[in-house]
Design a protein around this nucleic acid. Structure first.
Ligand code: NAD
Ligand code: NAD
Lengths: 215, 215
DNA sequence: ACGCCCTCGTGCACGAGTTCACAAAGCACC
DNA sequence: GGTGCTTTGTGAACTCGTGCACGAGGGCGT
């Protein structure tokens, strides 16, 4: 088996970042080797699942010993495409967009906020937390100039689909949508969504049902 | 089958809020009846899936016609436990916590932000966007007083597990975690998480792999 | 009243993901 | 070098979710 196009299941891909964070913690603690058991505990999953997930990356473990933390972290970063930065553009410099722009955690993990985009001409040209605000029409230019590869949608729901279309037209293939609405992107583009109200509603469902409060 | 304890699959529960939002849109447009086909298109899923999902709620459709929008919305709200408000407490009055407190969308959907909680004594006692900031020690009292049922964790990752423990100890059963770390809650409590860096990393994975850019 | 047409509800087959269980493989110590 | 202990990597069974395909059932027009 060469390095080739192993197909990694979607569910596994979503767990890789969690493992990677655990490995980073271990590195901080100067731990050099970790077992699937330990990693499973840190990531909050089953040990067999960890081993199967890691096996998609290759056979990087040593039987009887475990995995070398630093090497595994490197391989995982490579697989996730984290060996280089991915500049992001945040569209919608409102309440949420500004909070995201001010968040250091993105840059830290390799996703620097390259610019903010807003349709409001009063905001265009200003600088928020050190990030320049641009007009949506500048998108194609900005993609070229700043090497933007990911777009974050933080506009009102009604504008979301239009913004997504603009992002795709500008050559951006990956989109993270915060607006509470269903949007579609053409084949070949990648879309993920974060829906906070949905999360709360799921919680209320389970609390309403499974918990008739004992006694 | 009576109303009893039908078990609704997790995947279906996560889609109900999406259907509900679509129904709300239809209500706005004064549409009285909708087919599974149309609802599927709005929710971005398969029509058969819509019918199967809705069938878990009961037989609320009419063959040859479709579903009555208002009635279905009501039944769905009831099932999701949205017939009453669920006051939430946001723990961590920082960058993210303040943005969330300022967001009107939660109250609108039945999740009013009842209070902010912060360990920083400089913030305790102040009022942010009209929401009072309290000390974590007041949690049990606040739960009693304000009827808080959901806790949102917006503190740094290192504090998250401790906060979760405090929330549970105060009687809160549902927790939404924004801190990028794995936390655990005891049996009987419900936990969901939102991990933005994870979403970006998943996007970078797919962009790195599936898109070697044609031509 | 009857039959046609439309859309729901669901049985079934399939695929994805999870978990178990165990052989293979390395290390350490004698 | 051999023996035993540990932990990986993975086949296989199983669970869960999806989507097709079709029968059942209700409305509507004649
Ligand atoms: N604020 C939160 O905490 C929060 C939480 C969950 C979800 N959301 C969702 O995130 C989105 C943004 O929320 P917000 O509170 O920041 O809203 P906001 O009204 O504060 O900001 C929206 C911004 O988008 C800009 N905008 C509008 N149309 C645009 C367009 N076509 N192109 C570019 N920019 C455009 C506006 O000028 C404004 O600056 C909403 O969909 C909201 O439902 C917000
Ligand atoms: N800001 C964002 O856009 C964003 C995006 C994604 C994830 N996050 C995550 O959300 C969390 C909060 O981010 P932030 O930018 O708001 O951080 P922040 O530093 O601005 O705010 C954290 C707040 O939590 C309070 N706090 C610390 N320990 C506490 C405790 N034990 N009990 C109660 N309050 C406590 C602090 O006093 C501070 O007010 C972090 O884990 C971060 O990784 C933030």
């Amino acid at each position: 088996m060469t390095d080739g196009a192993r197909h990694i299941p979607e569910a596994t891909v979503s767990r890789l970042p969690v493992y990677l964070r655990s490995l980073a913690e271990l590195l901080d603690e100067k731990v050099t080797t970790v077992s699937s058991e330990r990693l499973a505990e840190m990531a909050g999953v089953n040990a067999a699942k960890v081993r199967k997930d890691l096996s998609y990356l290759g056979s990087y473990g040593t039987r009887g010993v475990g995995y070398e933390v630093e090497y595994l972290a490197f391989q995982m970063s490579r697989e996730l495409g984290l060996t280089h930065d991915w500049p992001v553009a945040i569209v919608g410099a409102g309440n949420l967009g500004q909070a995201l722009a001010n968040y250091g955690g993105f840059t830290e993990r390799g996703f620097p906020v390259a610019c903010l985009i807003d349709a409001d001409v009063d905001k265009v040209g200003s600088r928020i937390h050190g990030v320049q605000v641009h007009h949506p029409d500048d998108l194609p230019h900005l993609v070229e100039e700043l090497g933007i590869s990911i777009g974050i949608i933080a506009t009102p729901a009604v504008a979301a689909q239009g913004v997504a279309d603009q992002l795709v037209a500008a050559g951006i293939k990956s989109i993270l949508n915060f607006a509470p609405t269903v949007i579609t992107v053409p084949e070949g583009a990648f879309l993920r969504k974060v829906d906070l109200a949905l999360e709360l509603q799921v919680l209320s469902f389970y609390q309403e049902h499974r918990a008739p409060d004992p006694v």
